[in-house]
Design a binder for these strands. Structure first.
Lengths: 207, 207
DNA sequence: TTAAAATAATGGACGCTGTTCATTTTATTG
DNA sequence: CAATAAAATGAACAGCGTCCATTATTTTAA
């Protein structure tokens, strides 16, 4: 088994991924170039394809990495937060997107070509984020409503995502909205309060 | 003033825009090609640039047109709806996106290059959609809360947008969610109910 | 030690993209 | 019937993703 380079296959994978991630953060999805990545790490474009197979697989790997950073960012933001963990969650969501706009947008800019699927490993690593939210939503809910937590969590992620999208793409600014994150948090609180209310109402009916 | 073609400048503008819109609907943002548009209408690529100046301006015009269709779709969906106009609104939002996924996604896929701004006319035509929502939200709110209608409307659009995005890009499916539109409607209802509650609470305090 | 096999890396070729602009074609005007 | 002004062209350029025959290198087997 011959090899020529200073880098093992695994090292090369990491080298490309790291540089790709760096460039995605810098220039964004629409200006991302696999050739440029190859140039920067001193390998030919062919090597990139030997290692990743296709541009789509490299992009998917870059986005999976972003998901990982995002999840860690959330956990860090939550750590030690004794008071308002829901507000911390929303803030963690927004602040990551604000601090890494290109990386964050690339997650939604890249769409897998028909037929291509993520590996189980990638899928698992991406779902951590949702799991964090589901955990916190469950904790914020009264015991009898906990069964609904995963579904409500999905919905609240979508809610915050919508607000975050409009905040970053300028839509809110165009509409004259100055505090998108406050709006998002207000919506989330309302939904959690509604879940509370529903539990109270059910309890009263039983009496 | 010499001219060579069968089409006036205005006709040509419309011809390109119509074919561009048709192709966007067919192949989507990532596979859209100005050259292909030119070929289809039997003009050279140069003519396209003479008329629109840049690809970005053509894309902006295509998306503005989509906004118009979307607003008309909403109004049609609302017309004659006596009962649940909020549900009709959410359904109109979702159904347009479902029926025209490429056109709908292109609105958010295309980002104006730094420095480029929409014309006032384009801006006006795009804002009709939000105005419809603001109108309906105002109508659904009790009189004392109407002042908050525009801001709440923006927020509810973002909420529904987030759910619609995840519905179309497969994120909800991946999370095991089968009824995204129901989730969106539930969130919207909760926010409207919360606004109701707030009014009642304020009234009670006064007594 | 040397030849064969296996792997790694290359980069030219292909067909596509957006963009520019000197050139050509045409219609209108004087 | 020129002269002029506008319209339309398409070659040229630089870039892109993708493919894959070729080359370089290392390992293995004889």
């Amino acid at each position: 088994m011959g090899r020529r380079s200073d880098h093992s296959r695994t090292e090369l994978f990491e080298l490309i991924l790291a540089e790709g991630h760096r460039q995605m953060a810098e220039v964004g999805f629409s200006r991302f170039s696999a050739r440029e990545v190859a140039k920067k790490i001193g390998y030919s474009i062919g090597t990139l394809y030997n290692v990743f197979g296709s541009l789509d697989r490299l992009l998917a790997a870059i986005n999976t990495r972003t998901f990982g950073l995002w999840a860690r960012h959330l956990e860090a933001r939550l750590e030690g937060e004794q008071g308002d963990r829901i507000a911390a969650l929303v803030d963690g969501y927004f602040s990551f997107a604000r601090d890494n706009p290109h990386l964050w947008m690339a997650i939604y800019d890249h769409r897998l070509p028909p037929g291509m699927v993520l590996t189980d490993d990638e899928h698992d690593r991406r779902s951590v984020l949702t799991e964090i939210v589901a955990r916190e939503v469950a904790a914020a809910l009264p015991e009898p409503a906990r069964a609904e937590a995963p579904r409500l969590a999905r919905s609240l992620v979508a809610t915050v995502h919508g607000h975050c999208t409009f905040a970053l793409n300028g839509a809110f600014e165009l509409m004259g909205e100055a505090a998108p994150q406050d709006l998002a948090l207000a919506r989330v609180r309302e939904s959690l309060a509604a879940a509370d209310q529903a539990v109270v109402a059910t309890a009263l009916k039983k009496v």
